[in-house]
Design a protein around this nucleic acid. Structure first.
Lengths: 183, 183
DNA sequence: GAACCTTTTCAGAAATTACTGAAACTTCAG
DNA sequence: CTGAAGTTTCAGTAATTTCTGAAAAGGTTC
């Protein structure tokens, strides 16, 4: 129920969110009728919801010998789920927004106000590109490494700030060679 | 228009998104009637939209001497906007979800299936806590440092992976002392 | 190839969400 | 105070989204 509520705040259909939550906590794969009964929704609704979840690559199907029904299961690797969600949102929402901004930036500003608007859009464009670019790159690291990086929290960044404040000569701020890790 | 569309995919009312986009690209602060005219929506709708945006701390008001009308402006510091959004979503959606999960984890599992469900929820709980905790910490760094960190992309992480593969003796994997930055 | 079981589709109904416009309210200068 | 200018509220309406259930389609088995 809570996930249905939260889903709808994130633009995801209530039933779709609930189906996902149900599959996520289920020890075994479920078939359509299990879901119908558990959530009290119609057959058609379950079918559409499952299709939506498959289009997001969030559920997998499974078939069992001697049973005609299709069973559905939600992968349980949380890093993978996170990655999948990020990739799909990138493809469906971020990329179209970037290309819209790009084309808006190509037109000639008709007024001073337009020029300012373009400047703001350019900032936003660059911000989104930087953020999603970084994200895509970092996602390629192993979950283990990512977990460690997160465990270090802001320490990595504070280190950089330290370096910034006491500038050493002939130092490139954007390259980093293997440090000596002590202690 | 595009932002209205995208907003609704993220659970944000179309008009609210459009008002925000309009203010964001406007060189000057606008008053309610400007917005009504620009977007062709009713006075009441604009009023409600602005209130919503203020509750998200995404727009500020401004009053001008000799003019009774309230002027609205969207701050233009993108890092600040990003941070504000993250903080509000954390407060409104992540925190309630975490506390729901916490209470679900406190109940005694009534069956084997319940125990599995709890285990899944525990994993999700820990993942969200780690991610948002890291995020909150990193957000405290200056935009300049953050930009540099992002510029380094996955290099920081690859460094860690490298260290993992060729283990040096007596090394704690979770602490990091200032490295020698060369070149 | 026909009976059977399951899934998908989709038109219409239901529910939800968003919007309007007018009245009520607030603010402030005179 | 008063009245003009501006803003908010909210009941009613409109638009959109979601859901249902029955019919069609898809697959399997014998």
């Amino acid at each position: 129920m809570h996930f249905g509520e939260m889903g709808s705040r994130w633009g995801i259909n209530r039933t779709v969110s609930q189906i996902y939550a149900l599959l996520f906590v289920s020890p075994d794969a479920l078939h359509a009728e299990d879901i119908m009964n558990a959530l009290n929704v119609s057959r058609g609704n379950v079918s559409m919801g499952l299709r939506e979840l498959q289009s997001w690559r969030l559920v997998e199907t499974e078939s069992r010998p001697g049973d005609r029904r299709t069973y559905y299961r939600a992968p349980d690797d949380i890093w993978l789920i996170f990655r999948t969600l990020a990739e799909e949102r990138q493809r469906r929402e971020v990329d179209p927004t970037l290309s819209m901004l790009r084309s808006a930036l190509l037109t000639d500003p008709a007024s001073e106000a337009d020029a300012v608007a373009q400047e703001r859009m350019r900032e936003m464009y660059e911000f989104i590109e930087m953020l999603t670019g970084w994200f895509a790159e970092v996602q390629r690291l192993s979950p283990k490494t990512l977990t460690r990086l997160m465990g270090m929290g802001s320490r990595v960044g504070r280190l950089l700030e330290l370096v910034d404040r006491s500038p050493a000569p002939n130092e490139s701020p954007t390259t980093l060679t293997p440090p000596t890790v002590k202690e």
